[in-house]
C-alpha cells in the first residue's frame, strides 16, 4: 500500500471519527450550556444562545432543595444496593452455569431470557400490585429488588462467558492441591473473573441509575429517584429548562465519570465477554 493512499485513509478515518465525536458530544455540551442560564435566557431563541450571563443559580437551587437531595440519595442507595446484589448473585450463578452439573439449566436459562426480552410495561402494573400487597409501595426496597431481578440475567450471562474464557486447568490444579471450595473461590476464581465482575457492576449500575418506568410507577415521594425527579420540570404551567438541564448534568455526571474512570474493564469486559 503506497503512502498516499495511507495518508488518505488516515485522513478519512480522522474525519469520520471527528464528525462522530462532535455529534456524540454536542447535545451534552448544549445541556451544560443551558444549565448555566437563567430561565429567560434558557428559553430564548437559539440565535441568542451565547448572549447570556452565566449563573450557578440552577445548581445552587438544586442543592438547596431537599427533594432533589433526597432523590439523589434514593438513586444512589438503589444503584449501589442493586449492583452489589446483582454482582454477587451473577458470579455464583455464572459459575454454576459454566462449571457445574446443573439440573434444570435449560429451563432456568429460558426463563432468564424471558425476563430480558419482555417489555417492562408488561411487568409494572403486576409488580405495583404485588408491592402494594406487601405494603412496600413508595419504598426503596422493592426498587432495589426489582432492579436486581431485571439485571440478573444479563450479568449472569456475562459472568458465564468470563468463567468459560478462563482456563479450567488452574481450578483443577487447585482442586488436586486439596483446596477447599471456599479457598478455590476466594483465591483462584474471583481474581480471574474480577474484570468480569467489574464489567457486570458497571452495566448494572448504568441500568439501575437510568431506570425510569419502574421508579415512575413504584415511587412517589420517599422513593422518588433522580430520573423521575427530572421529569417534574416539564409541567403544564412552564418548562423550566435551566433547572432541568442542571438536573440532567447532575444525573449524567456521576455515571459518565464513573465509567470513564473504569473504561478499561468496560471495554475489556465487552471484548472478553462477547468474543473471547
Amino acid at each position: 500500500m503506497n503512502r498516499r493512499s495511507r495518508t488518505l485513509r488516515h485522513g478519512l478515518t480522522y474525519l469520520v471519527l471527528g464528525i462522530a465525536a462532535a455529534y456524540a458530544i454536542f447535545p451534552l455540551l448544549w445541556v451544560v450550556l443551558t444549565s448555566l442560564k437563567n430561565n429567560r435566557d434558557a428559553i430564548a431563541s437559539a440565535d441568542r444562545a451565547f448572549d447570556f450571563t452565566p449563573t450557578w443559580s440552577n445548581y445552587s437551587g438544586l442543592f438547596d432543595n431537599p427533594a432533589f437531595l433526597s432523590a439523589a440519595l434514593t438513586s444512589f442507595i438503589v444503584t449501589v444496593a442493586a449492583t452489589a446484589l446483582v454482582v454477587v448473585i451473577a458470579t455464583l450463578g455464572g459459575y454454576a452455569f459454566a462449571r457445574l452439573r446443573l439440573p434444570g439449566r435449560r429451563t432456568l436459562a429460558s426463563l432468564m431470557v424471558i425476563v430480558q426480552v419482555i417489555p417492562i410495561i408488561v411487568l409494572v402494573i403486576p409488580l405495583f400490585r404485588i408491592v402494594s400487597e406487601v405494603g412496600l409501595y413508595d419504598r426503596s426496597l422493592p426498587l432495589v429488588l426489582i432492579m436486581t431481578g431485571l439485571n440478573i440475567p444479563f450479568a449472569t450471562w456475562l459472568m458465564l462467558a468470563f468463567f468459560r474464557s478462563s482456563p479450567v486447568e488452574i481450578e483443577e490444579a487447585a482442586a488436586i492441591d486439596g483446596a477447599s471450595r471456599f479457598q478455590l473461590f476466594r483465591q483462584v476464581l474471583i481474581p480471574i473473573v474480577a474484570p468480569g465482575m467489574a464489567t457486570a457492576a458497571i452495566f448494572t449500575a448504568i441500568e439501575v441509575w437510568n431506570a425510569f418506568l419502574v421508579p415512575l410507577v413504584l415511587g412517589q415521594s420517599e422513593a422518588q429517584t433522580l430520573t423521575v425527579y427530572a421529569s417534574q420540570f416539564i409541567t403544564y404551567q412552564e418548562i423550566n429548562w435551566g433547572p432541568l438541564c442542571a438536573t440532567a448534568v447532575l444525573i449524567f455526571a456521576p455515571i459518565v465519570l464513573f465509567v470513564l474512570a473504569l473504561q478499561r474493564p468496560l471495554v475489556k469486559g465487552i471484548t472478553t465477554g462477547s468474543v473471547k
Binding site: 462449571r99 439485571n151 440475567p153 449472569t156 462467558a161 468474543v275 473471547k276
Partner: peptide, 15 residues
C-alpha cells in the same frame, strides 16, 4: 437491560 452480549459463543457446559 438487554440480552447478553456476553454469551456469544458459549458452548455446552465446558468440563
Amino acid at each position: 437491560a438487554a440480552p447478553p452480549a456476553g454469551a456469544v459463543d458459549v458452548h455446552r457446559p465446558g468440563r
